[in-house]
């Protein structure tokens, strides 16, 4: 059996919630272990993660840093840095961690597919949705919009050519890969880059205009939708943990073939009841050990 690799974690007085979430989301073969300068490192330690308030003068390498508010470590160069998404001390290039819940039912629907979904539902070819605190509105750009309750937002986020939203509704829209327009505060809070992940408008009129233009620009909408979705997804603790391992050169042991098959399907975002999962199960069911070496298709399909 392969011994797990260990990530030594050097924390100050408190362990930030975001850091705890990332450590919990590390791949199964990577174990986080508490470390201090006074104690010997556990066997198998391959990398270090320091909270910035516990960063020594000469950190052990390779290492990453979790930015703690008020503990400025200056320019870290190529050293990976992590921080809470949207925090004021975030620097460009930081791995931003969001503790917002990812909508379980959300699936990325890029503009070409959503145009097809509108077509088969006889919806307008171009459709803009807007989330407000008291509900949502939707309609073709330039026409009087229809009103709907706030709980219809995920549907609109999956179908609209472009959406206008902030806060949780923006997060939901990004989970559905909707081409999105927001305000500057909305982009900053979710750690999004204006013009790359979302369009930003300073006032309602500007945001409406940007959304109408976006609804009419397939190419820009596709780039924005893909980027916004991937960026939001990368802020989830599991996404940050995977990227942290990559940047630190920490490689978990390869999975066994059968559990690897499930892991591969999961990593690609495959829905539980998809045809390809059933085909994969059928293809491997007759192989010795296929069910006993960790692959539990019954759970995946019915959980």
């Amino acid at each position: 059996m392969t011994a797990p690799v260990r990530l030594a974690v050097h924390v100050g007085r408190d362990v930030p919630d975001g850091l705890t979430a990332v450590l919990s989301a590390l791949p199964p073969d990577v174990q986080p272990v508490a470390a201090s300068a006074r104690e010997a490192l556990p066997e198998g330690t391959v990398a270090h993660l320091y909270c910035s308030d516990a960063l020594p003068r000469r950190p052990a390498t390779p290492y990453a840093v979790w930015r703690v508010p008020g503990a400025d470590v200056g320019d870290l160069g190529d050293v990976p840095a992590l921080a809470d998404a949207g925090a004021r001390h975030v620097r460009p290039g930081d791995l931003q961690v969001s503790l917002r819940a990812w909508p379980d039912s959300a699936r990325p629907v890029l503009p070409f597919t959503r145009a097809g979904l509108r077509r088969v539902r006889d919806l307008p070819a171009r459709l803009v949705g807007e989330a407000r605190s008291d509900g949502v509105s939707w309609g073709a750009p330039g026409e009087h919009p229809a009103e709907a309750p706030l709980d219809t937002w995920p549907t609109l986020a999956a179908l609209a050519s472009a959406v206008i939203a902030t806060g949780e509704e923006l997060w939901t829209a990004l989970a559905w890969a909707a081409p999105a327009v927001t305000d500057a505060a909305g982009a900053r809070l979710l750690g999004l880059t204006p013009d790359v992940d979302v369009l930003v408008g300073a006032d309602p009129v500007t945001r409406a205009r940007l959304a109408a233009e976006l609804a009419d620009d397939d190419l820009r909408a596709a780039r924005l939708a893909r980027s916004g979705w991937q960026t939001a997804r990368s802020h989830r603790p599991a996404g940050v943990a995977a990227e942290l391992c990559r940047r630190l050169g920490v490689r978990p042991a390869p999975r066994s073939t059968v559990s690897g098959l499930t892991a591969a399907l999961d990593a690609l975002g495959t829905p539980p009841h998809s045809l390809v999962r059933r085909r994969a199960r059928a293809a491997t069911a007759g192989l010795p050990g296929a069910v006993t070496s960790g692959w539990r298709p019954d759970r995946e399909e019915h959980s």
């Binding site: 097809g116 077509r119 495959t270």
Partner: peptide, 22 residues
């Protein structure tokens, strides 16, 4: 075809393609 089954297959392939190419 322009139906929900095809569109879900197309959506999933798009998601897979984005993941693999990224």
């Amino acid at each position: 075809a322009w139906d929900d089954v095809s569109l879900e297959e197309q959506r999933l392939l798009t998601e897979w393609d984005v993941a693999a190419l990224s």
